[in-house]
Amino acid sequence: MSREPAAPLLSARDLTKRYALSAGVFGRGATFAAVDGVSFDVERGETLGLVGESGSGKSTTGRLVVRLEEPTGGNVFFEGQDWLALSGRELARRRRDVQIVFQDPQTSLNPRMTCGAQVSEPLSVQGLARGRDLKERVGSLLAEVGLSADIARRFPAELSGGQRQRVAIARALATRPKFVVCDEPVSSLDVSVAAQVLNLLAELREKSHLSYLFISHDLAVVSRVADRIAVMYLGRIVEEGSAAAIVARPLHPYTAALLSASPETDPARRRPRIALSGEPPSPASPPSGCAFHPRCPIARPRCREETPKLFPTPDGRRVACFFPGELAPGAP
């Protein structure tokens, strides 16, 4: 197995996921793309934020990367290895390196299993620990996420939302993964508790040199936790770059609108709102040309006819717009 030392920890290339449309309306065989040619790299120790609204394909992208679903097309490379070619025991073994934390621990945890059993399950399945050692590992994992050892005997329903999410994180970390997909990990939590969980994720990242794919609808949260941000709209990445550059000067008009919709409590820092008309279209019936054009304040005829490709910019970003940077969100 040859491994390029400089290869990113994880690369997605042209990932595509098509689903069948419900039969009857468009006849058999009609499909639509929930994820449509998505490519990105995540380096070791890096956090890539994946931002978008409902129907943008951000969660599907996360599920494809951890192989909860199989893509229709494209590739994923993990540590330079063809991740999609793995199967059977080899895949089962390698899964320990790639984990996922979901939005709602109420549904992602098994209500009939104690928290201790849920955290120990991946360890015993992977054959990483047994007996006394297993018990100790569970105790130290719970401690790592800021929970006391007696949580192990409790059931998810007995815990608060924040505690449940900590258990879900402990479970994801049990096998010492290198890469964790966090899919809206704090969206169901109150702000004060969300802040605690975000701090925990940051600490764990530093301590264990983790890489995250951090999926969220909340650009404010992502701007704080991610090194780089990829903005998705209707199954595609429309802009990608360093978090600092994107927040300071978005190039895609959709990014600019998202930034301006982000709530700001300090009047001195409030940006003028860019009002978008309409709502995100359904992936099942995407508009022609640039998918954003029906809502775009600066759309021209060309945008209706031609689909802009992601192209690199001089400052190291990628953007899919014929008129990048034209719609400025205004100085904060």
């Binding site: 702000v191 004060s192 701090n199 940051a202 701007s223 704080r224 936790v225 927040v247 904060p332």
Partner: peptide, 17 residues
């Protein structure tokens, strides 16, 4: 959580209750 163009570790800390 507020938008931050400030990067890296300082920005990653949230003042949790």
């Amino acid at each position: 959580p507020r938008l931050s163009a400030r990067t890296r570790n300082a920005a990653r800390r949230f003042d949790a209750i």
